[in-house]
Design a protein around this nucleic acid. Structure first.
Lengths: 404, 404
DNA sequence: CCGGATTTGTTCACGGGCGTCACAAAGCGA
DNA sequence: TCGCTTTGTGACGCCCGTGAACAAATCCGG
C-alpha cells in the first residue's frame, strides 16, 4: 500500500524530541508538548499528528483531566498501545530471557525464562533470539530493532564482551556480531545492539524509573558477583571512548581488606557483593537460590534481630558509602540509583549510607546527592529495548521510509 | 556610527561552529571550513564574510600553500590579529596575573606578575582587574568578557571558591560575585566567569594544546600542593552537576601511605605532589623557589645520577600510574594530559608510567590511552579566556547587537 | 604560450521549515 | 447566556539553507 502520509511541512526537526517526551512520560498532553519543545502550538500539532500517523503515539481528543482549571482542555498524548516493539534480550549468570518492549518502556510480551547458559555464545543467543522471534510471530507486532544486555563490559565499536566473568563465555566474544547473525537467521531483519546490563538498567531507570529528571545520574549495582556502574549524562549513556567507562569495581574501600583478582586489596568489587555479606555475617552460602537472593533474604529477615547480620550489613554500608563518595568526588552526579544488593543495603539503613557519602565527599556537600533504590523490575531488558528504540527516537521518519 | 553590516541571509546557524573551527585552528581555509561544517560553498562563504565583518576573523585571498595539488587555492582564514580580546586573570599560591587573550588562544598583552596574595579576595581581584583594565586602555582593544582562574573548586551555580586550600582566602568566598563587582568598578562592563585552574587548563589544552582532537580528554595536574583533575567531553568541560567533578585528589594509591587531611591514607593528593617527591628523595624543602620548581629541578638534574632521586621518582610514577588507572577505569578517556609535577614525572620515564596505567586498567586495554605532557605555557590564563569567549563562540551575532 | 582539467568563490532562484497571526473550538465561572 | 481563558488549525511570510550556473585561479600537458 502507498501509505498516505500527510505531507509534513513543519515539525520535522522536533519529531525526535517530541517522541522522546511522550516516550518518557514528560508530555501527557499536547499543551505540555508545546511548552517542552519550545515551539508554537501549530508546530506541536503537526508533530503530534505526524507521530500518530506513524503509529507511534495516540492523540485522544477526549477531555480527561484538565491541565489547569480554566480554558479548553488539551488533547491527551500517549504511547500507541498496539504500536511497534523492540526485541529485548538479556543473558545473566543463571540463564537468559527475551521480551518485546514497546515505547514507554512497556513490556508487551515475555518468553518463559531459561535457566542455563551454554558455553557457546552463539548457542545461547540463537535460543534467546528464537524465543523473541516466536513472540513477534504470536503477537504480530512490527519489530523496529533489537537489544541485548550482557553481564560484561562491552567494548565499542567492536561490540565484544570483554570480561564475561560470571558467564562460561570466552573473554572477547563478539556478541554483537553473533547477535546480529542470529537475528538474520531467525528472520528478524533489524539491527541488534548490545550493552552492559548495568549500563542498560541505568538508561532504563533514567527514562522510566528512579532516575527520571536527573541531569547526571550515577547507577551502581551488584549482581550475583561483582559490582557494576553506569553514568547517564544529560539523558545519554556515557560509556567512555571505547565503551568501558564506569568499571567501578576496583575502587579501594578498605586498605586492609580482602585480596581481589585485580591484584589489589579491599576493592569495592569484593567488599560489597553478596558473598562478602554472607562471610561478614559468618554464614556459608547455601545450596538454594543465588548468592544475591540469599544475601538479600538475610538482610530482610535478620537485620533487626541478629547482631552479626546487623554488624555485617553496616560494615558493607560503610564500605559502599566510601566507594560512592569516591565516585561522587570524581563525577559529581546529582542522583545515585542503587541496584541489586546495594539496593538492599540502602533500604536497610538509608540514613547511615547517606551520612557516609555526605561526610566523605565534596567537603561535606555530598549530602546534596540524592541516593535512591532502583524501581524497575526488569531494568536490563527495558534498557536493551531503549538501545533498540534509540534510532527511532533520533529520527522517527526513518520508520516511514523503511515501511515502504 | 551605524555599522554597515552586510545583510546576512544565510549561515546564521553555522556562524558559531564556524568561529569555533577557526578559533581552534581546524579551519585554515574556506574550503576546509566548507567540508567541516558540512554545508555548501555558498553558505560557508557567507559565514566567512560575516565573521570577517564582525571583526573576528580575517579572510586572506592570497594563494598561500595550496590545499591539494590542483585547482584554485582556497582563501586563507585566520583569527583577526587586532580583534577583540578577553580579559583573563589568574590567582595562584604565590601571586596573581592578568592578560588579554584574543581568539585562537593568543596572549595579546600581559601585565607584570604580582607575587603576593592578600587574605581579602576583593583586594586581590580588585588589583588584578585593575591591571587588566590598564592593559585594555593601553591597547585600546575591545573587551568581550572576562575570565578568572582560581586554585580551588568552584561551586556552580553560586560561583563560590569552595576550598582555596593554598590561598589565604576563606572557604566559600563568592569569587564570581566579587570578580564581577570589581569589573564594574574598573569600568569594564562585561560579564565575568570563574573556574578552577586545572579545569581551565584542560579546556585550553583541548582547544589549543596537547588535547586537540581528543573526544574524552582527562587532565591531571599538580600545582605547588595537591592534585587537580579535569575532564573535557566532546569539547565541553565536564564540571558535574554542581561544578565539583574531578576532585581526584583522594583516590587511594598506597594503602599504607601518608595520612591525608581527608581522613584516609595514601591519597593521590599527598603521594604524588612536590613535597612527597622531596621527602621520598630525602631532601628538605629549600627556602628558594616554589616546591614545584624545586621538585621539578631535582628530577631534571639528578634523575639519571642520584639513586635516591631515581627511586623516589619511580615511586611517584608508580603511584601516579595507579591513580590514573583508577580514573581510566571510571572515565575511559582516549587521552590523558599531565601538568605540573606529573608532567615532569611523565617526561622522566614515560614508558614506565604508561606501563603501569596499561597494566592496571581496562583488563590491559588501558594501553590504548595516550598519555601526553601539557604544552601550553599559561594554560589557566588561556582557559579563563575560553570561558569568556564561549558566549561569543555560541552566538557571534550577539557582538554586533551589543556593539550598537 | 595556450587550452583543458580541477578546484574554489559568487550570484541567484527555489523551497523547506518554522513563527506569526487571526479565527474557531472547548471548557469554566458569574 | 455571556464573557474569559486556553487550545487546535489554517494562511501567510520570513529565515536559512540547497542547488545550479558562471566566473576565477591554479596546475598540467602539449
Amino acid at each position: 500500500m502507498t501509505h498516505t502520509r500527510s505531507r509534513l511541512d513543519r515539525g520535522r526537526n522536533a519529531l525526535g524530541p517530541a517522541l522522546e517526551l511522550v516516550h518518557t512520560g514528560r508530555a501527557p498532553t499536547r499543551a505540555v508538548l508545546t511548552t517542552e519543545l519550545g515551539v508554537t502550538r501549530a508546530t506541536a500539532g503537526a508533530v503530534a499528528t505526524e507521530l500518530a500517523t506513524l503509529g507511534l503515539i495516540t492523540v485522544d481528543p477526549r477531555p480527561g483531566t484538565a491541565t489547569g482549571s480554566q480554558g479548553r482542555p488539551s488533547h491527551r498524548l500517549a504511547v500507541a498501545e498496539d504500536g511497534p516493539v523492540a526485541l529485548a534480550a538479556q543473558v545473566h549468570t543463571d540463564g537468559y530471557r527475551a521480551a518485546l518492549v514497546g515505547l514507554g518502556g512497556r513490556i508487551v510480551a515475555t518468553a518463559p525464562a531459561c535457566e542455563a547458559v551454554d558455553p557457546d555464545p552463539a548457542q545461547v543467543l540463537g535460543e534467546v533470539v528464537a524465543a523473541g522471534a516466536g513472540l513477534l510471530r504470536e503477537t504480530g507486532r512490527r519489530c523496529i530493532g533489537a537489544g541485548l544486555a550482557v553481564p560484561s563490559a562491552v567494548a565499542e565499536p567492536e561490540g565484544t564482551a570483554l570480561n564475561p566473568l560470571h558467564l562460561p563465555w570466552p573473554a572477547g566474544a563478539p556478541v554483537r556480531e553473533i547477535f546480529n547473525r542470529c537475528l538474520t537467521e531467525a528472520g528478524v531483519p533489524v539491527e541488534g545492539h548490545c550493552g552492559n546490563d548495568v549500563n542498560l538498567s541505568a538508561l532504563a531507570e533514567h527514562r522510566h524509573g528512579a532516575g527520571q529528571g536527573a541531569a547526571h545520574l550515577l547507577c551502581v549495582a551488584t549482581g550475583h558477583r561483582g559490582v557494576g556502574g553506569a553514568l547517564v549524562l544529560d539523558g545519554r549513556l556515557h560509556t567512555g571512548s571505547s565503551g568501558l567507562a564506569l568499571e567501578v569495581g576496583h575502587l579501594t574501600v578498605d586498605p586492609q581488606g580482602r585480596p581481589c583478582h585485580c591484584g589489589s586489596r579491599g576493592c569495592l568489587d569484593v567488599e560489597t557483593d553478596p558473598l562478602a555479606l554472607l562471610e561478614a555475617a559468618g554464614r556459608r552460602p547455601g545450596p538454594e537460590g543465588s548468592l544475591l537472593d540469599q544475601a538479600g533474604a538475610l538482610i530482610g529477615a535478620e537485620y533487626p534481630t541478629d547482631d552479626a547480620v546487623r554488624d555485617a550489613t553496616r560494615q558493607l554500608i560503610d564500605r559502599l558509602g566510601l566507594g560512592l563518595a569516591g565516585l561522587v568526588n570524581i563525577l559529581n552526579p546529582d542522583r545515585i540509583v542503587l541496584g541489586g544488593l546495594h539496593r538492599a543495603l540502602l533500604l536497610a539503613d538509608a540514613p547511615r549510607l547517606r551520612a557516609v557519602v555526605a561526610e566523605r565527599s565534596l567537603w561535606g556537600r555530598g549530602g546534596s546527592v540524592a541516593i535512591l533504590p532502583c524501581t524497575l523490575d526488569h531494568g536490563s531488558l527495558v534498557g536493551a529495548a531503549e538501545l533498540a528504540w534509540q534510532p527511532v527516537l533520533d529520527d522517527p521518519l526513518a520508520l516511514a521510509v523503511t515501511a515502504g
